[in-house]
């Protein structure tokens, strides 16, 4: 369960690029996720998160670059590789005419490592009735069934694409608890995309903010927090900010109150911002992951608008 930098890498991306017509979904992405790590992929809608996950799953080929899972070329996605991966897609494709019991029986035959005890334990935790038809399950129930199907063969890597979106808070917590209990606590690896910052902060060791096919920030949550901070400056009457550093990611001015989010932050930079703007007051604010995300995304948007205009 303890992560070390010399743990073997489970996911390796090397210059992976994916284009759909003229639109670039992945732009020369490099990434290493080591064994036992939970990696949270964050990004606005349309950033290319699902494309990235589909490539990991061997569902769509990269235009260039290399993807290796457990050291093996992922584009081939051999049967042996499939046995080691559990996948909960954003949109569930299941045989809707089967009952819960039938689909479990069917999928269990595909996996030699299928754990019947784990499956029945999860079924009773989730209160999923075996006799119900898949087509009659609610969205939350379908997601839970999908998680059982992904976890019961004891995969080494679990890939989740927006697993908790559209679920109520209790469903979300039950879902995360199961991921923790049945997978994470056994030292296995998770790669998941999410819009729920609470979930990401709770379970991720590492996060990456993915925008326009690239990671624009990546690291442990603590690393991001110590690197990206907001500085609040009180300007002298009638003055505009005189010194805007190149580290500024996003800024907002409201009367004398100037807030500027900087990356990377340093105490020296803060001192410089104070003195060069002749500040009459100021302080440094630690940001939550959600605030970091918002400021980085807004800053990037504004930057693009400036280039266009």
């Amino acid at each position: 369960m303890i992560m070390t930098t010399d743990a073997p890498s489970v996911i390796e991306l090397d210059g992976v690029t994916k284009r759909y017509g003229g639109k670039i979904a992945c732009d020369a992405v490099d990434l290493t996720v080591r064994q036992g790590t939970t990696f949270g992929l964050l990004g606005p809608n349309g950033a290319g998160k699902s494309s990235l996950i589909r490539m990991l799953m061997g569902l769509s080929p990269a235009n260039s670059g290399q993807i290796r899972l457990f050291g093996e070329n992922a584009s081939k996605h051999s049967t042996a590789l499939r046995q080691r991966i559990g996948y909960v897609p954003e949109v569930h494709c299941m045989y809707r005419w089967m009952t819960v019991g039938e689909i479990l029986g069917f999928v269990s035959k595909l996996y030699p490592r299928w754990d019947d005890d784990l499956a029945s334990q999860m079924l009773s935790t989730f209160e999923l009735p075996l006799t119900k038809k898949v087509s009659s399950l609610s969205k939350g129930m379908t997601t839970k069934l999908s998680l059982i199907l992904a976890l019961a063969h004891s995969p080494d890597l679990l890939i989740l694409d927006e697993p908790t979106s559209g679920l109520d808070p209790i469903f979300r917590e039950e879902f995360l608890e199961s991921v923790l209990q049945c997978h994470l606590c056994k030292g296995r690896t998770v790669f998941f995309s999410s819009h729920h910052f609470d979930d990401v902060e709770r379970v991720a060791d590492e996060v990456g903010i993915f925008v326009d096919g690239r990671f624009i920030a990546r690291g442990s949550i603590d690393e991001l927090r110590s690197k990206i901070k907001r500085v609040q400056i009180v300007l002298p009457d009638g003055k505009l900010p005189a010194y805007i550093p190149e580290q500024a990611v996003f800024q907002r001015l409201s009367r004398r109150d100037w807030t500027v989010t900087v990356s990377p932050f340093s105490e020296d930079l803060f001192e410089q911002l104070m003195s060069e703007n002749h500040a009459i007051g100021g302080n440094v604010v630690d940001l939550s992951l959600e605030d970091i995300f918002k400021d980085v995304i807004r800053g990037r948007k504004r930057q693009l608008e400036e280039i266009e205009s």
Partner: peptide
Amino acid sequence: SLRAMAVEICVNPNTVQ
């Protein structure tokens, strides 16, 4: 234990550690 605590409060066991 680390795992019991992690599941109970729903956070990554590395964080509890």
